[in-house]
Amino acid sequence: MDVTFEFDWAAALASIPHLLPGIPYTLLISFGGLAIGFIIGIIFGLLRISPLHWLRLPAGLYIEVFRGTPVLVQVLFIFYGLPQILGGPINALVAGIAAIAVNSGAYISEIVRGGVESIERGQREAGLSLGLSRTQAFRYIIWPQALRRMIPPLGNQAIISIKDTSLFSVIGVGELVRQGQVYIATTFTALEVYLMVALLYLAITWSLSLILRTLERKGLVGQ
């Protein structure tokens, strides 16, 4: 069998205008989900290190469940499963944001816990010895330092979550992969289009890396 293969650059370029409408959805699901995930992560990350057993336990359970199950299963559960309980359909976009939120929230909880626990005990002691309450010591001394240390792993999580949104084509939300699939269905140029889809993901994640690296170079994060 003699297959001569030629990459069709014209087809690749022609697909781009059809793919671009997916980018706002990809960004909205990623960053919308991550924003909620960050809030979840702060709450559950701090509960996780609470001195109270009955607060630590549910936080640990949440983290284990949502880190230990695939994000694809989570979104299918939310989109197809939850309506059976709620008695009405869930918007695909909302389901996607919710899935990223609960999934990244579990990972971010661990990032928050690690960040806070990485601050030396002496910092808290110095704050307390000055008469600050435990809450004040946390707010003014521990949290600002922990947040700086959390930014690199948070950037990492953001990149992972952006890529995870590609799975949500299965629930029909019009993100990048979905746009590609729809376009390929009429043109049959899978190779060219998926390469463009990949490059568009790379453009998003690489921009994010660059921003994070600049922040680190300027000494705004880390230490």
Binding site: E125, A126, S129, L130, L132
Partner: peptide, 30 residues
Amino acid sequence: RTEVGMVFQQFNLFPHLSVRDNVTLAPIKV
């Protein structure tokens, strides 16, 4: 604790605050 000051072996200065802000933090907040 507001009446007893302490100096530690490892200094325990707050690395995210300037030298001046290290000194003003407790007087302002406490």
